[in-house]
């Protein structure tokens, strides 16, 4: 098996140029899907028989909660690559993903609280799902803070990667919290293995938004990684060439 597809990620210049293309493709996909999915979900999907219109927060809450966890999983992959292959780009990935992941986590906590007040009767309850999501937010903050606290970039990258790997334990806890323990949060309505617990007129726009938010996350992460690569490689001749061209 050829490892070329993998080793080319070690070249910052190759990444910078490729990711520029991926960034714009994912940006356009995100814009189109999010406009379609959000208008469809908020304006045309039927109301829920119990919750009325307040259930429509699902079109924001579910995709951002998915991404809050997906960004962490991606950071864990980066941490493994950093330790095993010593690839510098993986460290850039962790740095970019932590900020984007924190934004999605905060968004899911806030949107969930806004939905919780009319539906449950409270903004917050210390059940296993909500608490483990809050721990995820603290992990992201810890990773961002740890990097800022260590002056040497190589040391900072390694310390962050260790923290990322330690925090991976939280991901299965978040996913299965609603099944392992009694929680106020309901179990998942969308599962890969089962029929969705809602009609197609509700889940199709949700799926459009989920793909849309994934594309938006790719856009944000690539944009941020490219900026970080330029900054870290600022002494390299190819960077002067690229910046000179612009």
């Amino acid at each position: 098996m050829s490892w070329r597809w993998f080793h080319q990620w070690g070249s910052p210049r190759w990444f910078y140029e490729r990711a520029g293309r991926w960034q714009w493709v994912s940006g356009w996909i995100a814009l189109i899907l999010l406009v379609v999915g959000t208008l469809w979900g908020l304006g045309f999907a039927p109301v829920d028989y119990q919750q009325g219109h307040s259930y429509r927060i699902i079109y924001l809450h579910v995709p951002v909660a998915f991404l809050a966890q997906a960004m962490y999983a991606a950071m864990a992959v980066c941490a493994v690559v950093l330790f095993v292959w010593k690839m510098k780009l993986a460290d850039v990935g962790i740095q970019a993903l932590a900020v984007v992941g924190l934004a999605f986590t905060v968004l899911s906590l806030v949107s969930g609280a806004i939905w919780g007040k009319p539906t449950w009767g409270t903004y917050w309850v210390w059940d296993a799902r909500l608490t483990s999501m809050l721990i995820l937010a603290f992990l992201y903050m810890g990773i961002i803070g740890l990097r800022a606290a260590i002056a040497d970039p190589d040391q900072a990258g390694k310390a962050c990667a260790i923290l990322v790997l330690v925090g991976v334990v939280n991901l299965p806890i978040i996913k299965y919290s609603v099944e392992w323990w009694n929680t106020l949060h309901q179990p998942a309505s969308l599962k890969l293995t089962e029929k969705p617990a809602m009609p197609a007129s509700m889940w199709v726009p949700l799926l459009v938004n989920i793909v849309g938010y994934y594309a938006a996350a790719f856009y944000l992460v690539f944009a941020s990684m490219r900026a970080l690569v330029l900054e870290r490689e600022r002494r390299a001749s190819w960077v002067k060439e690229v910046v000179g061209r612009a």
Partner: peptide, 17 residues
């Protein structure tokens, strides 16, 4: 001292209900 409603994972339009 506090009553919270628990919602299940099922969502349905009123006509279907």
């Amino acid at each position: 001292t506090e009553v919270l409603a628990k919602h299940d994972e099922n969502y349905m339009p009123p006509e279907v209900t």
